Computed example of a mutant assay.
Amino acid sequence: MTAALVDLGTLQARLPELTEQYRSAQPFPHVVLDDVLFADAFARAATEFPAMRDPFWKGYLHVNETKYGNTQPDTWGPTLTEVAKEFVSPEFVGFLEQLTGITGLLPDWSMDGGGLHQTLRGGHLNIHADFTTHHVHEHWSRRVNILLYLNEEWRDEWGGKLELWDKDMTAAQAKVEPAGNRMLIFTTNEDSFHGHPDALTCPDDVARRSMALYYFTEEEHAVRRSTNYRARPDEAGIKRAAIAVDRSAVDLYDRAKRKLGISDEHVSGLLERISRLTRRRTR
């Protein structure tokens, strides 16, 4: 790797400091890194981010989330594609292994659940712990997430901070603002609850933008759990019930996706139509 885009040299030089921060962080191991890409590389990547109405966006539009994803790097601009390639390179994976203490990490170019993400005004992502195994490689256990924020501008009053909650869902112990060229790396397991559940208040022509990649280890007895959405302590009973019902529906879809090979493309249009109908009925 030439490191023309990712400032890996600086990250490696900071490993002793970053490793201590990562492993001692609460409520679960994580670290926030700024200026991960060189400045000119970030500027190009942000400029290349697909337009809000790009046809390759897939809607994830239901009670627990309203966001869009693009898992097809061949539809991205050249800088975004090369950034993703550096994130799956042996050098960067080696950095993650040293940072997290997890050996044998496997990057995932299929972008199962990852890729580019955008959330528009009014969008949200309820607190959740991610699905635990790869949908195709059933023995791959999900271990590490990276999120690179690609916002050219993000204002505090727009919301969208990623909340990191303790395993008992009693409090958000950390919040991460989605500032441009900022990366969050965290260990993912059944208790790594995170999300941004309050509706975004950004302008209509602004989106909360990121690139997500996930890393796995091969396990003989990988334990499958679908995305586990949770209510916050102060949320009303009706909302709690809706979150629970939707969580069960997502679990059924997750099982069907694994057993029948159903792709997200087949359901994204249906989810979007249902979401529009639901919004009309609640106005």
Results as ranks from 00 to 15, higher is better:
4 A>I: 02
8 L>R: 15
11 L>I: 11
12 Q>L: 11
12 Q>F: 03
15 L>M: 09
19 T>Q: 15
19 T>G: 14
19 T>A: 14
21 Q>D: 10
21 Q>R: 15
22 Y>V: 04
27 P>D: 02
27 P>H: 05
27 P>Q: 06
27 P>S: 00
29 P>L: 04
30 H>C: 12
33 L>K: 07
36 V>E: 05
37 L>Y: 05
37 L>H: 03
39 A>K: 12
39 A>G: 09
40 D>G: 06
40 D>V: 03
42 F>K: 01
43 A>E: 13
44 R>K: 11
53 R>H: 13
54 D>L: 06
58 K>E: 15
58 K>D: 08
59 G>V: 01
61 L>A: 11
73 P>G: 02
77 G>L: 08
77 G>F: 05
78 P>E: 11
79 T>Y: 03
81 T>L: 05
85 K>F: 00
89 S>D: 15
89 S>I: 08
91 E>P: 01
99 L>Q: 10
100 T>P: 09
100 T>F: 04
101 G>V: 08
102 I>H: 06
104 G>A: 03
104 G>S: 08
106 L>D: 03
107 P>K: 04
107 P>V: 10
109 W>F: 08
110 S>W: 09
112 D>K: 09
113 G>K: 08
115 G>H: 07
115 G>W: 01
116 L>M: 11
117 H>R: 10
119 T>L: 02
121 R>Y: 01
121 R>V: 09
123 G>I: 02
124 H>K: 12
124 H>R: 12
125 L>T: 02
128 H>V: 08
128 H>T: 04
128 H>S: 00
137 H>L: 12
137 H>A: 14
140 W>Y: 12
143 R>F: 02
146 I>R: 02
146 I>C: 07
146 I>E: 10
149 Y>W: 13
155 R>H: 15
157 E>I: 00
157 E>C: 06
157 E>G: 01
163 E>K: 09
169 M>V: 12
170 T>F: 06
172 A>I: 07
182 R>I: 01
182 R>W: 07
183 M>A: 11
184 L>S: 05
186 F>T: 00
187 T>A: 09
187 T>P: 01
187 T>K: 13
189 N>V: 01
190 E>Y: 08
194 H>D: 06
195 G>A: 00
196 H>D: 02
200 L>C: 05
202 C>I: 05
203 P>H: 04
207 A>P: 00
218 E>I: 02
219 E>N: 13
219 E>R: 13
220 E>C: 01
229 Y>V: 03
234 D>T: 07
234 D>Y: 04
236 A>V: 05
237 G>D: 15
239 K>Y: 08
242 A>Q: 14
242 A>V: 00
245 V>R: 10
245 V>P: 01
251 D>M: 11
251 D>K: 13
252 L>A: 13
254 D>A: 12
255 R>H: 11
256 A>N: 11
256 A>V: 05
258 R>Y: 02
260 L>N: 10
261 G>P: 12
261 G>R: 07
262 I>T: 14
269 G>V: 07
271 L>T: 03
274 I>P: 00
275 S>R: 10
277 L>V: 08
277 L>S: 10
278 T>A: 12
279 R>E: 15
279 R>I: 07
283 R>W: 03
